[in-house]
Simulated scan of single mutants.
Amino acid sequence: MQELLAIIEVDSGDRVLCCAPECKRSVYKRVHVVRDNSQILVFGQTCFRGIYSDLVSAPSKYTGFHSKVLTEEERRLLVENTEALILRFENEFSKGNSIELASESSLVGHRKNNTDHDQGSGRDVLCHYCGKMMVTHIQHVPAMGFKCQVCKDNRERLPVRGKIKR
């Protein structure tokens, strides 16, 4: 049985090693913790997508689609006893204080206070670029992710066929 348990993030100075065969990279952002049968393994995002392509579109069990920044103690648990870290996440989840629910409730509160990202009625999604809640009428997920109006307006002007976009 394969299951994506969590997507986490550690400080760039406290990188962890990817468990993928032949991979010797250290990772710190979008670190994927996977249960593969009885083992709990840690992968960087690229290796995770290559090995577990069927799990890419599913949310993780304890953090959803978001990554959780680990505290120093949680990072120590990740390195020394990953099973204990997952048990901690499981306890938080079972108490009704899941990381995903806490994250989503803070985003819902953000949406109420942020009129830049509120574009009328539709469904709530996260901007792929800034991570803020926004509303969209698009029924499918775009290839590059949703982009709010603020991020569209603030993008760098890139040359198109020798001319600058205006």
Rank of each mutant, 00 (worst) to 15 (best):
M144S: 12
A20S: 07
L17D: 06
E74A: 07
D14A: 08
E74C: 04
N113I: 09
G120M: 09
T136M: 05
L70Y: 03
G64Y: 09
D14G: 00
V42N: 00
S121L: 10
P159Q: 12
A143H: 11
G44D: 00
I51C: 04
E3V: 05
Y62F: 13
D153K: 14
V108H: 06
V31S: 01
S103Q: 05
A58Y: 10
P59S: 06
K165T: 09
V16T: 01
M134S: 10
I40K: 04
C127H: 03
I138N: 13
T46K: 13
N37A: 03
M1L: 04
L87H: 02
I8D: 02
S103Y: 14
P142M: 13
N81Q: 07
L17A: 08
N97L: 06
P142G: 09
K112I: 12
T82S: 11
F43E: 01
S98R: 10
A143E: 09
T46N: 07
C130H: 06
K112A: 10
G50T: 00
K95I: 00
K24I: 01
K61R: 15
G131V: 04
Q119P: 00
L70E: 02
G64F: 12
G13A: 09
I86E: 01
R123W: 00
C130M: 10
S106P: 00
L158N: 03
R88T: 04
E104P: 01
L107Q: 14
H66C: 14
E74L: 11
R111L: 12
P59Y: 04
M1V: 04
M134P: 11
G131L: 10
R88L: 14
V150P: 01
I7F: 03
Q2C: 08
S105C: 07
V16F: 01
F48C: 02
R161M: 13
K147Y: 00
K132C: 04
V150K: 13
L158A: 09
R161T: 08
T115C: 10
V69I: 14
T115V: 15
L158T: 11
K152S: 08
G50Y: 13
C47L: 04
G64R: 11
E100R: 13
E22K: 11
R76P: 03
I164S: 05
L77F: 03
S103D: 05
V27W: 04
G13S: 09
L101D: 11
E92N: 06
N154K: 14
I164W: 10
K163G: 02
D116C: 07
